[in-house]
Design a protein around this nucleic acid. Structure first.
Lengths: 353, 353
DNA sequence: TTGTACGCGTTATCAC
DNA sequence: GTGATAACGCGTACAA
């Protein structure tokens, strides 16, 4: 080991020089964009190995190409909370599929960073996928549009010209509600997802709906209310079994006002409600019908099959990924409307009284 | 379609020209790295707004700076599976904390992509965090070292000079086992995590251990075996309640060979075992003691408190993030050894027979 | 098939 | 406080 002051990393130019070829030739050897004589190819590779050159610097390459190979995914709230939700993880899964043709990496970003740091404003990304639609999303959208990046919004409205991936939340929720009505239920209560960032576990009032920021919650509630206009609804603070349990207890505590059916806006919430019923010695579906939304596989649920509306979560992600891929290819992104499929399970039945 | 309908995006040079200042001045206006007279500042900002310039191009900036502000996190297997695991999500949470001082973005990468695409080999990242230690991790490691990127490995051995974040898996597992032995149990069975990518749900044999690729599984098993050398162990295919349920059924099916205690390598598996016991009408801990590992909060578990070893999952991520931050500051990364803490819960008791 | 030359858009440095 | 200039490392027309 000699003096070596500052061991500047070898560049492709160094490699070319060492191999006795032009830098362009060396470049081609690594990109494979053109034919190179096997002999020179070998020489270049040997020189590279010799200098410890590990291929083109991605930063320089992306400047030159105008592409970084990275797509940003903007989630609301804490990453942890986002990934706790099976629907989100399924969607991410689909997204990686849809993006496969680009073989792009996924840069996770939270929606609420305003600090200097690696925000949407200065991340080297080629496109952006926005998920959900809080007030903040609008801010993110502003930044992204300013940068002129392709955007796709999943379950949210981004305004004119921005391709979206939508779900028929209202219709699908109405389907589930109609199923309960058709079974003969008239005394139904709802457990909704969070309405706004405050995430309070309290009854839903018209005022709260007016100021709600989570479209999904509002849309599904609208569908439910279209069948049972006056049903009591309580908002949970998130999509968790434990939340469903808590709200379930609230709804079932008083035998006098106990509904014959509870409809939750997510499967996890529904499972929680079932647990609450079990605690109180109520049988599902004999004493209480419970329906959910999402159609996910709940780890540890076991026997019962939830009556629910199965949403194409993976498809949502895949569709978004495909649109991003299209836009990056220079084509125009298109809005895709996806639909849910109602599924009858073993957790709903006619009311006993 | 004419050639002029590609409106080249404005650059900082355009802005500077329009504002009548030098590009370096305009640059400083955006970076804030030096004082600028309010008047010129205004002029530059106005010109930028006028030209629709949304700030420096991140690609060019990162080439110039030699930093992209992105840290890669390499997970094994499907992203979905990774995020299904509460320990992983907790760790990611800690990682974002530890990385906070860098305000860097997190680029998710799978461990098993070998395609041309945006693999570790050509992603514009400043550092890498490798999680777990499969055979493939070694391959990832090769690439990363070749590029000379700072690396931190969480729960895996990366060889000389690579800082690691480790857990005292063997010792902690032995602690749990000793607790069971001290309660008087002699007839104990184990449920382990996956041993290798095949993820088979079958008994663990010496041969399988010899060819295992998942260090965590092997280490914890070693701890368990140090107390109960001859206990039957069955490997689950993943850390899921449903997996615990399946393996639990296998272990409890035959009353004649039924153990008095089952020790699982994860809390989710343990919960599954409890469910299996409940199915068979066995009471926990009266008829069967169950212990887990991880100390996570299981959504929907409810009443019982699991006897387990609480691992510092969030800390693991935070420590990794901090080491990355250090290395990026030019300091040397250091290996951190973290320890688990044994917790007695309500799911273990002396054997009844 | 190989080499030359230029530009991608920015920022650090140093004069002024 | 402001300006000129030189890299940063690469890809790719274009010429040979």
């Amino acid at each position: 080991m000699s003096t070596s002051d500052i061991p500047r990393r070898a560049t492709i130019a160094d490699v070319a020089r060492a191999a006795g070829v032009a830098t362009s030739t060396a470049s081609v050897v690594f990109s494979g964009k053109a034919k190179v004589a096997p002999a020179t190819r070998e020489r270049v590779l040997a020189a590279a190995a010799d200098l410890g050159y590990a291929g083109p610097d991605p930063r320089a390459a992306s400047l030159r190409r105008g592409r970084s190979g990275i797509v940003a995914v903007v989630l609301e709230g804490h990453l942890r909370a986002a990934f706790l939700d099976p629907v989100t993880t399924a969607m991410m899964d689909g997204l990686t599929d849809g993006l496969a043709s680009l073989s792009a990496g996924i840069l996770l970003m939270r929606d609420d960073e305003h600090g200097e740091g690696a925000s949407l404003a200065n991340a080297p990304v080629d496109a952006v996928v926005l998920i959900g639609c809080s007030v903040r999303t609008k801010a993110s959208l502003e930044i992204v549009r300013g940068r002129g990046l392709p955007v796709v919004v999943i379950e949210g409205d981004a305004g004119e010209g921005i391709p979206r991936i939508t779900l028929d939340n209202t219709e699908a929720a109405a389907d589930v509600a109609r199923h309960l009505r058709d079974l003969g239920h008239t005394d139904v209560a709802f457990v909704t997802l969070a309405l706004d960032p405050a995430r309070e576990r309290i009854p839903v009032t018209p005022e709260r709906i007016a100021t709600a920021t989570v479209d999904v919650t509002v849309d599904r509630l609208a569908g439910m209310r279209s069948v049972f206009p006056d049903a009591l609804a309580i908002s949970a603070s998130g999509s968790l079994i434990d939340e469903g349990l808590l709200v379930g207890r609230m709804l079932l505590a008083d035998p006098a006002t106990r509904p014959t059916a509870i409809m939750a806006q997510s499967d996890l919430l529904a499972v929680g409600v079932i647990r609450a019923a079990e605690e109180l010695g109520l049988r599902v579906p004999e004493d209480l019908s419970v329906a959910g939304f999402d159609g996910i596989a709940v780890d540890g649920l076991g026997g019962p099959v939830l009556t629910t509306s199965v949403q194409p979560a993976v498809e949502k992600g895949r569709a978004a990924g495909e649109q991003v891929a299209r836009m990056l290819r220079g084509e125009k992104g298109e809005t895709q409307h996806l639909t849910c499929r109602f599924r009858v399970g073993t957790t709903t039945a006619p009311p006993s009284r």
